[in-house]
Design a protein around this nucleic acid. Structure first.
Length: 489
RNA sequence: GGGGCGUUAGCUCAGAGGUAGAGCAUUCGGCUUUUAACCGACCGGUCGUAGGUUCGAUCCCUACACGCCCCA
């Protein structure tokens, strides 16, 4: 079939420029439907509107000496009526050889068909680009997941729902920018390649700089750099960009993913909880036109106040038999982990054990929007300790549909405490935990200049977009999700 | 890493231990208001790959590859 179309392309090459680029479009389908869609045919003929449209030919219905075709542009589709006797000699005969999938341009007057569809009756018809490969079947479209991900261009040609997902994604990011810009935040870009990966607990990707002959890491988070900017006095900064984590691939995880990280001086984690709530409420209204989000059969109302509970409250809620008074007792927690079939390491203290229990029994049950607060210091090496209870930090994570969407805290700005936390991380690393953080000397030096009291947060953009587009897999919201390399033979 | 499901024409999918099927698309013919246009004819395949069982395997078995889902 491709050979057949190559033959047609060869004919085009022989008769002139097979890839012309001198046609000027002056209208999009959607704007024509909006402006003229409600007019009666008689009024339209009276108005005598000539338009030049172009796009991919998605349907071709030939009826002898006249045809209807559908042209798809970025806004939508426009029907064109092609009549042999309105076109110069030979054009209609050529047109009959064109294929669905070709890029076609038409110029003519608007009218309405008997069934009331706005249509261009064309006086000029041109083939702008020959398509050599056939499109998927017109009714079912492209449904093979693998091809949808690997050949996203075909998916986008065929599936309006896929195009809609990426328009929504763009709207989400745009909304975040306008929301933060309105609050005088500065958008910044910090390095993707770092000599010391930090700011999160994860395995990094390694790369090599030839000229300097040194190892570099793709960042796992921008956190430490952004807080350096707070030290520098920028006070309100954010970055929307990629992080890279060398971990498994799943419906929730892609090796590179997009995070919003923001830092706000003179704020606490509670201020950011309020901010996240306002951000999500405004976002769903702006993007979906409603505060109600339907996700995979569940309903979430962003118009209602989100629930708040502490880590320990969450553990107790989903493990009713546990002894409230022994939740920080390491031996007791070890017993509980054993019962729950949670693998543990000798290095785990009560804080880490709590989090293991929380993740095993609590996380997936957090369906409705919930802020979980008061994370153990042991698992929060960059968070400020709670003033009254040093076992805990002033930290929260935001959950919805059983998934973590955001993680924020009042920042640790005591350089000596931070140095101590780094040392604990280094000890973990030496004990074999290759996700533990390295000691970042420059970051300590920055804190020694004085970082104002600050709160910061990271929001997973991909998961947010999944939620707002009702997508079951992170791959549905990434234009080019990570795949094993394809074998061409 | 473990488990389940899948891989058949360009696309969407049937199918059975004995010559490989449909619709759409392609090709040819017809048709000047179609809407998954319609009518007629033709064309289209290493049944994911490699082994094994069998007189015979695309079908049964094993391994592998790739994908999707679930679990860790």
């Amino acid at each position: 079939m491709i050979a057949e179309r190559r033959r047609k392309l060869d004919e085009l090459r022989e008769t002139g420029n097979a890839y012309p680029n001198d046609f000027r479009r002056n209208a999009l389908a959607d704007e024509l439907h909006r402006m003229y869609g409600t007019q009666e045919n008689e009024a339209l003929e009276e108005l005598d509107v000539e338009v030049a449209v172009a796009g991919r030919m998605m349907a071709k219905r030939v009826m002898g000496k006249a045809s209807f075709i559908k042209l798809a542009d970025r806004s939508g589709q426009m029907q064109v009526r092609v009549e042999r006797d309105r076109l110069p000699d030979g054009v209609y005969a050529d047109f009959k050889k064109w294929d669905v999938g070709d890029i076609v341009a038409a110029r003519g007057k608007l009218f309405k068909t008997n069934t009331g569809e706005l249509t261009v009756r064309c006086d000029e018809l041109r083939l702008l680009t020959k398509s050599l490969r056939p499109l998927p079947e017109k009714f079912h479209g492209l449904s093979d997941q693998e091809v949808r991900y690997r050949q996203r261009y075909v998916d986008l040609i065929t599936n309006e729902s896929s195009r809609a997902v990426f328009r929504t994604r763009s709207a989400v990011v745009q909304y975040i920018r306008s929301f933060l810009d309105a609050q005088d935040f500065l958008e910044v870009e910090t390095p993707m390649m770092q000599t010391t990966p930090g700011g999160a607990i994860a395995r990094p990707f390694t790369t090599h700089h030839n000229a300097l002959d040194m190892e570099l890491y793709l960042r796992i988070a921008p956190e430490l750099n952004l807080k350096r900017l707070i030290v520098g006095g920028l006070e309100r900064v954010y970055e929307i960009n990629r992080n890279f984590r060398n971990e498994g691939v799943s419906t929730q995880h892609n090796p590179e993913f997009t995070m919003l990280e923001l830092y706000r001086a003179y704020a606490t984690y509670e201020d950011l909880i309020d901010m996240v709530e306002a951000l999500l409420r405004g976002m769903s209204e702006a993007v979906l036109g409603s505060t109600v989000v339907n996700y995979q059969g569940e309903k979430f109302d962003f118009g209602e106040k989100f629930a708040r509970m502490t880590v320990e409250e969450t553990i107790l809620k989903f493990n009713l038999e546990l002894d409230q008074s022994r939740l920080r007792d390491r031996d007791y927690l070890l017993e509980v982990c054993e019962k729950l079939d949670i693998p543990v390491k000798d290095s785990y203290g009560p804080g880490k054990l709590q989090i293991e229990i929380f993740e095993k029994t609590g996380e997936e049950n957090l369906r409705q929007p919930t802020f979980v607060t008061q994370y153990p210091t042991e698992v929060s090496p960059l968070s400020r300790k709670n003033d009254d209870d040093p076992f805990l930090t002033d930290r929260f994570e935001f959950f919805i549909a059983g998934r973590e969407i955001a993680n924020g805290f009042s920042e640790l700005n005591d350089s000596e405490d931070q140095a101590e936390r780094f040392r604990a991380q280094v000890a973990d690393r030496e004990a074999g935990d290759d996700e533990a953080m390295a000691f970042d000397h420059d970051y300590i030096r920055a804190l020694e200049y004085g970082m104002p009291p600050t709160a910061g947060i990271g929001v997973g953009i991909d998961r947010l977009v999944m939620l707002l587009t009702d997508s079951p897999s992170i791959r549905d919201v990434l234009l080019f999700p990570h795949m094993r390399p394809e074998v061409f033979d």
